[in-house]
Write a protein that binds this DNA or RNA. Structure first.
Lengths: 190, 190
DNA sequence: TCAAAACGTTGATCTAGGACAACTTTTAAA
DNA sequence: TTTAAAAGTTGTCCTAGATCAACGTTTTGA
């Protein structure tokens, strides 16, 4: 149940078994179906999720009614609507399982208790925040100024898993192009 | 010299005078001229900057040779090339004073010493990271799907200081449009 | 204080990619 | 297993905003 989470933690920090167990205790298993939402726009986010298997995505719907995908969390990753979880304000984004997924969920109070009282976990959270920021920056500013075809090439280089595992529709929304354009570009790249 | 920084800290955390002094000690005054670079692409970032007066901007130059501005730090804000500072890898971005500015600079080692050994400062850093992430997310995903004119409106609503204080050229690079387009839109909005 | 350079404005084109639509293929629910 | 709905593909057309260029205005540094 907790092997993947254990791997995640021990790869990142020095710790002991007692601390690990104290951490695990706060993470509750949660099984979600394909397309099930964990959070909808306007709700206040209460949980952080660790993906044991499957995949969740974070996306929003803009003024024109189009989906924009921000992030895919595959097995072995954390994912949530972080701004809403941090600020406890209504989320601008949706959190959705896009495959049948086995998750570990920790609620906000427990999460921040761990951060406040377990120095090793505070370090984990710092790393999560740093990485979230860096990842978002790289993706977004790596894209800016690129034409659509170069975005697809970028994805092929840096996140091929997304292209092989995610529907074209969602990939397109991740790249900020239409499915039609993505379809044309993929045939051009072959 | 340290009034603004003191305000920044005491607004955010509970602290005592001794801790404050220990923090101030690590921040060295630094005076920079308009247009002077604090960091260039490819260099490894060694300092975090607090802006006492003036303004620094973080920007990058993309494949097509165009500038894209990520962030303006006005007086009372922190700014640096955070990904490079964190990972100690060559920066993808430039850090530049765009007005004559009085800064307080803390080097990386001192910064992380404070984070590791001063719990209050660790909390400040956590808040910086959380805010940096949230701010970046809001700006970027607030923009996506918007036409150029709505980006300008967004700026008018949420960051009017930028429009009043920054050159059109840099505002345009912040919005991801050309100065020509920005000029046309501004006259349309009047 | 003045010349050169940078910046801003406006007009005339051009184009990448969106919008819409028709059709095929895949998926999933009953 | 069937069939309705969703996703993918491909064509045609269109538009927002880029590009290029000319010209006025502001800035700056010698």
């Amino acid at each position: 149940m907790y092997q993947r989470l254990q791997k995640y933690i021990t790869e990142r920090i020095e710790t002991d078994d007692q601390t690990l167990q104290a951490i695990f205790q706060k993470f509750k298993p949660l099984s979600v179906k394909r397309n099930q939402h964990l959070l909808k726009e306007g709700e206040v986010c209460k949980h952080y999720y660790f993906v044991n298997s499957g995949c969740i995505r974070i996306y929003n719907i803009n003024n024109s009614g189009q989906e924009g995908t921000r992030y895919f969390a595959f097995e072995g990753s954390f994912g949530t609507a972080l701004p809403s979880l941090i600020e406890q304000k209504p989320a601008f984004e949706f959190v959705q399982a896009i495959e049948h997924s086995e998750l570990l969920a920790i609620n906000r109070a427990d999460f921040y208790d761990l951060v406040a009282n377990t120095p090793q976990f505070a370090l984990i959270y710092r790393q999560i925040l740093e990485l979230a920021f860096i990842t978002a920056q790289k993706r977004i500013y790596g894209f800016q100024g690129l034409g659509a075809i170069d975005k697809v090439r970028w994805l092929l280089n840096y996140q091929p898993l997304i292209l092989s595992r995610i529907s074209n529709k969602m990939v397109a929304s991740y790249l900020g192009i239409t499915p039609a354009t993505l379809s044309r570009l993929k045939s051009k790249l072959k």
